[in-house]
């Protein structure tokens, strides 16, 4: 394949990945990694390095808009980043002593299982608003945003301790496997903390950039970030994120939840397939 062809294919795949990632709160690795490894025959290490860059691009590109429109909850995001960054460092430290086959199998299965509660509340718009108590109250883990129809949605977070545990796991996975962990972040905020779906995906989106930046140093130093690959990826992702954010701001929570469920199923299967080496 000549260089130009390679760049163009990757560029358009990245636009798609950026659009999808910015809507559901992931970094687009779910699209970028298989395109690179299966269709373009790139080594998995380079694919993961590209995925890290794509996560940072999706996050920063989309969050610029979501933060301005007050869809992202900055306090919830900052508080949970304590757990994701700590988890990422711990994961990177123990990665040498773990078996990635087993990890991918376990995490893939967890994702598959978490489809059940997600699908059970598939049509849910705004979760029942719990009272703000305990740690959530002390840290003012609450907020409001404006819905498509102009109404204001107020929400309170519940069970922040469980959210922290989920986020530590999300960080751990990033550190161990080098893949984005937006799926686990969205699940923690959605299932444990009962935030509205759009707040969960946009706050996840805000956070994944920091988790990815935390592990970027090591991938950069190893030389897993290949310029020929990441240039079209980063530019494509940024364009895609611009498109995706416009979509999310006009979409309803149930729509976002459905798209997230589909992407979650795909990434679960992808992880399990990779583990089994099929």
């Amino acid at each position: 394949m000549i260089g130009f062809e390679f760049l163009i294919i990757l560029f358009f795949a990245s636009i798609m990945a950026g659009a999808l990632g910015s809507i559901v709160g992931l970094g687009g690795g779910v699209i970028i990694i298989p395109i690179l490894t299966i269709f373009l025959g790139v080594d998995i290490h380079f694919a993961i390095g590209a995925s890290i860059v794509s996560v940072i691009a999706t996050s920063s590109g989309a969050a610029a808009t979501y933060v301005k429109d007050k869809m992202t909850n900055l306090r919830i995001g900052m508080f949970l980043e304590l757990a994701t960054t700590a988890g990422a460092i711990f994961g990177a430290a123990i990665a040498a002593y773990t078996n990635s086959f087993l990890l991918e199998l376990i995490f893939g299965s967890i994702l598959l299982v978490s489809l059940v509660p997600l699908v059970r509340q598939i049509g849910e718009d705004i979760p029942a608003n719990p009272e703000l108590v305990g740690l959530a109250k002390r840290l003012s883990l609450q907020g409001s945003y404006t819905e498509v129809d102009g109404s204001t949605v107020n929400y309170n977070a519940t069970r922040p301790e469980r959210g922290l545990v989920g986020m530590f796991a999300a960080g751990l996975i990033s550190g161990l496997l080098g893949i984005g962990s937006g799926t686990f972040k969205v699940l923690s905020m959605d299932l444990a903390m009962k935030l509205p779906m759009k707040v969960s995906t946009t706050t996840s989106n805000f956070m994944i950039g920091v988790t990815a930046a935390a592990s970027a140093g090591i991938y950069f130093a190893r030389g897993d970030v290949d310029p020929f690959i990441v240039a079209p990826v980063a530019i494509g992702i940024l364009i895609g994120a611009f498109i995706g954010t416009r979509f999310l701001l006009k979409a309803r929570n149930p729509t976002v939840r459905k798209i997230f469920a589909i992407v979650l199923a795909i990434s679960a299967v992808e992880m399990i397939v990779r583990a089994l080496g099929a």
């Binding site: 000549i2 260089g3 130009f4 080594d43 290490h45 380079f46 020929f228």
Partner: peptide, 12 residues
């Protein structure tokens, strides 16, 4: 590098 084979850049 448009006409260079992409594999040149992808050696891991």
């Amino acid at each position: 590098y448009s006409f260079t084979d992409s594999s040149v850049f992808l050696g891991y």
